[in-house]
Each structure stands twice: as structure tokens, then as C-alpha cells.
């Protein structure tokens, strides 16, 4: 009895602390959202609600170009990284061969190299190869750092796969290719989708690696935000920021829904 009360009291202290940490995490985001609707250039006191910073944004051709570039890079790089990463994840969970555990470890290297080192290495590499910087070099660079993320996500999904399902399909007369398309691939699909969404967000938000490998005139949204911030704080930056935060949040919610659906499909056999 005494302990129960203790526990509640302790949890109360913890609850307050946790609430403060959450406030710390979200206060800056709330401030950005609030001031993106504030009818004041000076930006620090509330002068009424307005949407003019957002309409200014959609009328700004430089911002629209940056958005187009960002989408182009993110879509192409996501497709490439998802295909490469899914094939690799399949190979790594399915086949154990000489050096496979070395390979499994090596895919973490791009995840732990400091981003700036990765960025300048790619820049040096393109320079040494005589490749001029363009959106192409940005796409190449993004695929290089995204593919490991896709492998990690898809591999996690594959590790829960019961190979008896494949054997059952083969016993029922499916050949190897049919088995892959009808059994294995549908099981992998939520993992592939989650990996693709993560890759897309990483590319969409990437600043450091893009900064070093885009060259002159190939601005993406994060680069545009950076150059605007360097000129000074304006309400338009808040509006772009909130727009970008909105896209990332939507994609996170989508991923979460896919993954909770995934958990349900895995649990179903237990219930029956």
C-alpha cells in the first residue's frame, strides 16, 4: 500500500519532468507555426492573424523552383535507394555467404560517418572524377547515404519472415518466381514502403550533403532556407519552415500507420 502511493508520488515528479522535456521539444516548433501566421515583420509580438507570408511564398518563383528541385531529387533518389536497398536487404537476410556478416556491418558506415565528412568526400570525389556539380550529383550523393537506411528498415521487416510460408507455396506447386511475387514480396512490402518514406524525408530535408554537392544555381528548399536565414530572419522563412515541417510530419504519420498495420498482420495468427 505504501509502495503504491510512493510509486504514484514518484511518477508525479517524473511526469512533471517529462512534461518539461516535451515542452522543450515542442516550444520552438510552436513558435515557428505561430509566427508564420503573425501579421508583423518584426516578428516578436503578436499583431494579428495573416496568411500573407504563405501567399508570398507561393508567388515567389525562386521558392517554387527550389521546391521543384527538391521534389525531383527526392523522388529519383528515393526510387533508386529503395530498389537497391530492398534487393540488398533481401540478399542479406536470405543468403549467408562468405563475408555476409562483414557486409551487414559495413552498411552502418554511412550512418556513422560525420555528415560533413561524407559531404566533402563526395565533393572531392566528383572533383577528382571531373564531374561538374548539378542536380545529378545531388541525386547520386543522396542515394549514397540513403541506401543504408533503406537496408536497415527492410532487413528488420525481413527478419520476422517465416520461411515455411515459402515452402508451403512451393509444395502447393508455385515455382520460385511465383513464390517470390505471391508470398515473399507482399510480406516485404510494408518494410519497403516504410524504408522509401524514410528515404524520401531524409532527401527532402537534407542540407549538409546537398550544400557541398549542388553547385551554383541548383537550389533545394533547405538550401533556400539557409541562404534566407543568412540574410536575416523574416516571416517568409517561418512559412517555408512550417510547410516543410508539415510535409515531414505527414510522411511520419503515414509510415506509422503502415507499421502499425504491419504489426497487426504479424499478430493475427496468435489471435485465431
Amino acid at each position: 500500500m505504501r509502495r503504491r502511493r510512493d510509486q504514484r508520488i514518484k511518477a508525479k515528479g517524473l511526469r512533471v519532468y517529462v512534461a518539461l522535456v516535451y515542452a522543450f521539444l515542442f516550444a520552438p516548433i510552436v513558435v515557428l507555426v505561430l509566427f508564420s501566421f503573425n501579421n508583423s515583420r518584426r516578428n516578436a509580438t503578436w499583431k494579428g492573424f495573416t496568411l500573407k507570408w504563405y501567399s508570398a511564398l507561393f508567388g515567389d518563383s525562386a521558392v517554387l523552383d527550389a521546391f521543384k528541385n527538391t521534389m525531383k531529387v527526392a523522388i529519383i533518389a528515393t526510387i533508386l535507394a529503395t530498389i537497391f536497398g530492398s534487393l540488398a536487404a533481401y540478399a542479406l537476410t536470405r543468403y549467408h555467404f562468405r563475408g555476409s556478416s562483414l557486409y551487414n556491418g559495413a552498411i552502418y558506415v554511412p550512418l556513422v560517418i560525420p555528415e560533413i565528412v561524407f559531404g566533402v568526400a563526395l565533393l572531392s570525389g566528383f572533383n577528382a572524377a571531373g564531374l561538374g556539380l548539378s542536380l545529378k550529383t545531388v541525386i547520386i550523393s543522396h542515394v549514397a547515404f540513403m541506401v543504408s537506411f533503406v537496408i536497415v528498415v527492410v532487413r528488420a521487416r525481413m527478419s520476422g519472415f517465416d520461411r515455411a510460408l515459402e515452402e508451403a507455396a512451393m509444395d502447393l506447386g508455385a515455382n520460385e518466381i511465383q513464390t517470390f511475387y505471391l508470398v515473399t514480396l507482399p510480406f516485404m512490402a510494408p518494410g519497403i514502403m516504410a524504408g522509401a518514406l524514410l528515404a524520401f524525408v531524409l532527401s527532402f530535408d537534407d542540407f549538409v550533403i546537398t550544400f557541398f554537392n549542388s553547385g551554383v544555381g541548383n537550389t533545394t528548399l533547405p538550401l533556400k532556407v539557409y541562404s534566407m536565414v543568412k540574410f536575416g530572419v523574416t516571416p517568409e522563412i517561418n512559412a517555408i519552415s512550417v510547410f516543410m515541417l508539415g510535409i515531414s510530419s505527414l510522411l511520419l504519420l503515414l509510415t506509422y500507420r503502415i507499421q502499425s498495420g504491419e504489426r497487426r498482420t504479424v499478430q493475427e495468427p496468435d489471435k485465431g
Partner: peptide, 17 residues
């Protein structure tokens, strides 16, 4: 949510504050 959103923008928000 903060993990998925742009590091650049989250850093910028502290300038505003």
C-alpha cells in the same frame, strides 16, 4: 516527430527565440 523533421529548420527556430 522532431527526429523526422529538418535539423536545419529546428536549429533556425532557436534564432527566432
Amino acid at each position: 516527430l522532431p527526429f523526422w523533421t529538418s535539423y536545419l529548420i529546428r536549429t533556425y527556430s532557436w534564432i527566432v527565440i
